[in-house]
Amino acid sequence: MGLLDKEFSDGNIVIARVDDLMNWARLSSIWQLGFGLACCAIEMMATSASHYDFDRFGVIPRNTPRQADAIIISGTVTLKMATRIKRLYEQMPDPKYIISMGSCANCGGPYWEHGYHVLKGIDRVIPVDVYVPGCPPRPEALLEGLLKLQEKIRNESLRKKIA
């Protein structure tokens, strides 16, 4: 009939590198920690909802850090919250990825100068994989950030995590 019939007619064996297979599995179902901080969280919700549909990239919110693969820091991180985020991050199992969403999480955003209670960039507390700029970033921008993260995972190796 089609191409697939011939491929699989004699035995269900596909040969691939372990790295590729693992990376493919990881990048295709990134479960994000269901966790919103500020304005960006609403855009994150909009991205998961009907119009933009985060689910087509395999991203669904998982509400416990112990079963999440990625955390999207969606909004302003305050000093009071930063210690909690660090703990959430430590509770996540490896491999874990971080998307810093929005200017506030990247560098303090509009609060960089007089924000006496704002952490100027989440990367002062935990390591970041992808930065998404914008205040707040449009859902398309967040999707782009996710694609960048997938690209990064695709090039990883089991022997060594590429920084």
Partner: peptide
């Protein structure tokens, strides 16, 4: 006349 601290719990506060 409030002065912000340099560090809070090991996190740098100013930009």
């Amino acid at each position: 006349d409030y002065k912000n601290p340099e560090f809070y719990k090991g996190m740098k506060v100013p930009y």
